[in-house]
Design a binder for these strands. Structure first.
Length: 287
DNA sequence: CTATTTGTTTATCC
DNA sequence: AGGATAAACAAATA
């Protein structure tokens, strides 16, 4: 579930514990999410420390305690953050979906102000890790600048594209080394808004497409943050987003049936009618 | 029973 | 070397 804006939404839930300190920690200590940092060590380190800062970048969240303790959480495929008070009625599952089951709570921080901060992850592809230091952890500093920041320039994008000419564009968009926070739905949304078929390889893009891609990446990130990170969904109906989940969906632009295909190991949803395949370089030469 | 899933890493092959 | 593919991780859902 969680991509850029969903991660930001979930991380915000833990604001309820801001400035309070950790009284008690409960963990599902054998859980795979603790594969890098043992649950016991996390629990003993956090005890008595105050939550002082919440950060998100890409698909990752970091919680700073006191001054030099950093709790990093990656939500993986099914991870969620909430407080015990909102377990039943938080927006992501308020309408119909089952609330998170307590048996899937992997880490719970019982805070001095009475709130409990919960990390719940049924599938356990998520990751919890701990770091001590005066500055952000190495794995945090390694996350590239946000795609919405001034540091992500057209020139940066061009260099990334130049370094991977043979890759499917959609696959490249999923690469967290270059596009932090973009996941499967955002990548499909970007491809759809640029009217480029997911079968296009990077080298097929001309200058015009690269500029359009740049604008669209930023637009989708900004839209997602604007709509999702503060109040969750629904998304506007003129996004591909609303139409891509159930098979049989139709393109909001032209009403054509959406296609679902495995491309680059992931399910791509796209509209054959309005998303075009750019003629490849070899064909151009022959013509 | 089957196949599917909003993520990532690793192995393997071409 | 660069890139594709499958598998692995684990659990719910259709």
């Amino acid at each position: 579930m969680p991509e850029l804006a969903e991660v930001a939404f979930f991380a915000r839930q833990w604001n309820a514990g801001m400035d309070a300190s950790v009284m008690r920690v409960t963990t599902h200590s054998s859980a795979r999410v603790f594969r890098e940092s043992p649950a016991k060590r996390i629990a003993s380190t956090l005890k008595g420390q105050a939550l002082t800062e919440i950060l998100t970048a890409g698909k990752q969240a970091a919680f700073r305690f006191s001054t030099d303790i950093w709790l990093g959480i990656h939500l993986g495929m099914s991870g969620r953050l909430f407080t015990d008070g909102s377990r039943e009625n938080l927006a992501p599952w308020a309408e119909g979906d089952k609330p998170p089951q307590p048996t899937h709570d992997r880490l719970v921080l019982h805070m001095s102000n009475g709130t409990a901060l919960v990390f719940n992850d049924p599938r356990m592809f998520g990751l919890v890790r701990l770091y001590r230091g005066d500055t952000t952890p190495p794995w945090w500093a390694a996350i590239p600048p946000a795609l919405s920041s001034p540091l992500f320039t057209l020139d940066v994008l061009k260099k990334v594209l130049d370094s991977h000419p043979g890759v499917l564009l959609k696959s490249l968009l999923l690469d967290q080394r270059y596009f932090p926070g973009i996941g499967n739905w955002m990548a499909d949304e970007i491809m759809w808004r640029t009217r480029l078929s997911p079968h296009n390889r990077v080298r097929a893009l001309g200058n015009k497409e690269v500029r359009l891609l740049y604008k669209t990446i930023r637009e989708v990130c900004n839209d997602a943050m604007e709509v999702v990170s503060k109040s969750w969904y629904p998304a506007p109906d003129n996004w591909l987003f609303n139409h891509r989940w159930k098979r049989g969906g139709r393109c909001p632009r032209d009403g054509a049936s959406l296609l679902y295909e495995q491309i680059g190991g992931r399910t791509a949803c796209w509209c054959e009618k309005c998303q075009r395949q750019i003629k490849n370089y070899e064909l151009k030469i022959k013509n």
